[in-house]
């Protein structure tokens, strides 16, 4: 199969990123990015202090983005509630709980008793339940792997899963010698091939991150619009 670029559905390569009009947003993004990058690599006091300030500004912007996310969540479910339908009840519940939590935490603080009660009684169990469901889903997915994709790597994947699970805990109180323990097969798998693979993946991810970051720095990619 050819590359994805040859697929007629993706169309031709566009040069949207090479638009000669660089808007103000792009100019600001590029300038600030270069300053932070330079401040990281060049140990100049001015740059370091400027970088520190800019990083702190990013924290403020990120926290503001949290409020924006909440507002967006509220808006989406508000429209769903107005539209009606079977899912509108859940949207109502979400909006109600959001408002109630906002009021309660606003009154008693994030570590107030009532705030913690909401967290401990509602969010904590719900998310723990989701985790339990995740366990079932993961077991089901592992069992169906042979049906979805039957190849050597899937077989190795399944065998590794079984070995690691078997070496994680004693079976009926019996510790399997060659599996269990710090010198067992399980520790060997986790500490050597798994770490090596993870490191390799992380190196590739790091290279991709560098490439993407550089594309954003030079203005080739402008996910921020403009």
């Amino acid at each position: 199969m050819g590359s994805g670029c040859d697929h007629p559905g993706w169309g031709s390569i566009e040069t949207g990123g090479a638009d000669m009009k660089i808007p103000v947003a792009a100019a600001i993004a590029i300038a600030f990015g270069l300053v932070v990058l330079a401040g990281y690599f060049l140990p100049l006091p001015e740059l370091v202090s400027l970088r520190t300030i800019l990083v702190q500004w990013s924290m403020i912007i990120a926290s503001t983005a949290l409020f924006v996310g909440v507002a967006n969540l509220l808006r989406v479910h508000w429209f769903k509630l107005r539209k009606g339908g079977t899912a509108s009840a859940y949207s109502f519940l979400l909006i109600a709980s959001l408002l109630v939590t906002l009021v309660v935490v606003g009154l008693y603080g994030p570590t107030g008793s009532w705030s913690l009660w909401i967290f401990n009684s509602i969010q904590f169990p719900i998310e723990s339940s989701l985790m339990a469901i995740l366990a079932v889903v993961l077991i089901y997915s592992a069992a169906r792997l042979m049906r979805r994709r039957m190849d050597l790597f899937s077989l190795l994947f399944g065998m590794a899963v079984l070995l690691v699970l078997l070496g994680s805990a004693p079976i009926f109180g019996i510790e399997i010698p060659f599996l269990y323990g710090p010198d067992g097969l399980r520790s060997l798998i986790v500490q050597i091939p798994a770490v090596a693979g993870a490191r390799g993946i992380l190196l590739g991810v790091a290279l991709g991150t560098i490439a993407t970051g550089l594309r954003i720095l030079i203005g080739a990619d402008r996910p921020y619009g403009g």
């Binding site: 590359s3 994805g4 670029c5 993706w10 169309g11 031709s12 390569i13 566009e14 040069t15 949207g16 990123g17 090479a18 594309r215 080739a220 990619d221």
Partner: peptide, 8 residues
């Protein structure tokens, strides 16, 4: 690159 997002 595969979805033709740009030349770079």
């Amino acid at each position: 690159a595969y979805v033709n997002a740009g030349p770079l």
